[in-house]
Amino acid sequence: MAKKTTVEIEMEDINLMPIMNLLCLLIPFLLLSAQFIQIGIILVDTPRKSRNTSKQKDDKKKTMGLVVDITQDGYYISTKAGSACPDRKANGQPCIAVTHSGGKKKYMHENLRKFIYSKFYKPNYKKNSDPDPANRFFVDWGKVTIRPQDMIDYETVIQTLDATRELPPEAKNEIDGVGSTLTCVFKKDSGKKEWALQGACMFPLASLGR
């Protein structure tokens, strides 16, 4: 009769120390280089670029020509038809004046958003809602020119761009089909040259400067 032999296999623990060493090196490196804030972008054109693209416009069509001037006193808003607040302009006052709190100047960008929405976007969006720009009432619908004075700080310019691009909260109930999130997104698919607009936008195509 064959002798039955039993082989005892000793299970050794895996040595985790090299992996631990590697992890302990990788984690501080990644912690140092990781970015915990999310960086986004605001897309703008120079006036020269926007002039080039609007060359093909139909002369019979109307131009809105929305312009926001950022001055030390506040926001001056005008269109091709003239100042958006002629009475205030006649008195040398801006449409939306700056306020002072704690010795610091504050630009009322939320008021600017509401003003542009109620004065220019809400009365005109139905006439300009066609996805094909050729069928819209204003040839330059969605475009705005922002003209900051030299000493205006960069943060104020960014806040102004936000105010002209994003719809105010009341648009959820007043504008059809804007959705509940009210977001305006520029998207560029890989390999594509042009950016595409998605979501609910007010005047997202901004050009800066004179």
Binding site: R48, I152, D153, L161
Partner: peptide, 24 residues
């Protein structure tokens, strides 16, 4: 100040860069 950003934009336009994305 905006003047400095404007100077950079104008220089970039001269170098044939016409579209800008501002980091935020």
């Amino acid at each position: 100040p905006w003047k400095l950003v404007d100077q950079v934009l104008k220089t970039a336009v001269r170098a044939k860069y016409y579209r800008f994305s501002f980091a935020v």
